[in-house]
Write a protein that binds this DNA or RNA. Structure first.
Lengths: 240, 240
DNA sequence: GAGTGGTCTAGACCACTTC
DNA sequence: AAGTGGTCTAGACCACTCC
């Protein structure tokens, strides 16, 4: 006798996608609960979760820890090779940017940092941690390292001000070159908690080294982005 | 009476990671079967799979469809803003590159392609599909679009030759600018099958528009990379 | 043919959010 | 207090790979 075939995760994906694409569930809309979806589609919660994770993987939806699943808003365009600040990008694209400084302190460069910043091990560095969001949603964490000898009184400055503007205007530094690295990583437990993301959540990892006219590394920066929040755009002009 | 606490996915992650980091399981090594791991650690297969997926998310391991889980080899460094060909990159970094042409045909530009290539809708384009691997492992799929009017006899050329070299040497084209877009996407069912990846597998999506001296889009390219195979490096020089 | 990963079922408990 | 997502158990069948 014929057995009712299982509802597959792919079918659940289709069901959810059609509602997202039709606009029935707009940006930032909360999806129904996992149990509600599995009841409606006559399937198990495991299958629903599998479908949700696939839509999460390509950035159509995201989750906020234990609060539920939400439709992902449009991604922000971002060119990490430019020194323009995040706030400017976000405003240009019609978003409301938000920055919070989580921590700032003086540290001694360890082996790894010394290599990245081309300084001797033990050199004094200023370390800043910030988180940033758009439209009320946290989208990335940032770890910034600056040579303390180049910015002697920076630690006194208000941390919310744009760093790149400050470096240029206040210290008269000119940027000569930026080296950018982009790869996939996963959030540490502490990072995931700040971004309200699940444990082990995959993220974009972007690191940037900014060099000045003399070839000194004036800024070293590590960013951890929600992967659904970001569209990286880089334009490269070839020399004549 | 005390109940034995559950083995958590995080503990399984730790168990697996320590064996990878210690070198007990080297690059490309096959992990034990999911059932063997769950038996050894006295846990369920679901928990083991959860752990494996977390290590997959940050690129430490990867799976080849239905064949098993493997330790991910070192990532290849890649600068999409340069026109150097993949083969050269791979050889410089000590890998054995591999390219296969999957398809080539003439098409009419649809609305989307016409916009991307700045040509009229219906313009004749040459479409090439290739897959590429290093050390015997497929790492990305590529869809290339070229204006048929600029390369009248290209369809007759051997497809394995480096395209960028050919464009420069044979046609004397000079590259002026490259616009690169990078984001996260997921593989279609057809793409996943070619890369031997699971359904809905997340990937790096890289699209590139290459412009010549006259500002014409001479190449438009879409790449779908296994996310664990890639480390993107871009260097940007600021104008004086 | 044996074993594997891919998928699905039908529960369960906990920590946390929301009301 | 009710409901949610996060996690875990203990099975099952299938399609596929490998031998």
């Amino acid at each position: 006798m014929p057995i009712k075939p299982h509802v597959t995760a792919a079918q659940v994906c289709g069901f959810l996608e059609s509602r997202i694409k039709s606009g029935e569930w707009g940006a930032e809309a909360k999806l129904p609960s996992e149990r509600a979806i599995s009841d409606q589609l006559q399937t198990s919660r495991v299958t629903v979760r599998e479908a949700l994770k696939r839509l999460e993987a390509n950035g159509q939806i995201y989750r906020s820890n234990r609060r539920g699943w939400f439709v992902a808003p449009p991604r922000i365009d971002y060119d990490p090779s430019r020194s323009a600040h995040f706030t400017q990008y976000a405003l240009e694209q019609g978003y409301s940017p938000y920055t919070e400084c989580l921590m700032q302190r003086l540290i001694q460069a360890d082996d790894d940092l010394a290599g990245k910043m081309a300084v001797a091990e033990g050199t004094q560095l200023l370390e800043l941690h910030r988180c940033r969001g758009i439209n009320g949603r946290l989208v990335y964490l940032e770890e910034i390292f600056l040579r303390a000898d180049l910015w002697p009184d920076l630690i006194e400055q208000p941390p919310d001000q744009s760093l790149s503007t400050m470096l240029r205007n206040h210290y008269g530094q000119l940027f000569k070159q930026v080296d950018v690295d982009i790869s996939i990583a996963s959030l540490s437990a502490a990072q995931a908690e700040i971004l309200q993301a699940p444990a082990g959540c995959s993220c974009f990892y972007i690191s940037r080294r900014t060099l000045n006219q003399e070839g000194l590394v004036i800024e070293y920066d590590r960013e951890y982005w929600r992967h659904d929040a970001l569209n990286i755009k880089v334009t490269h002009q070839f020399a004549e």
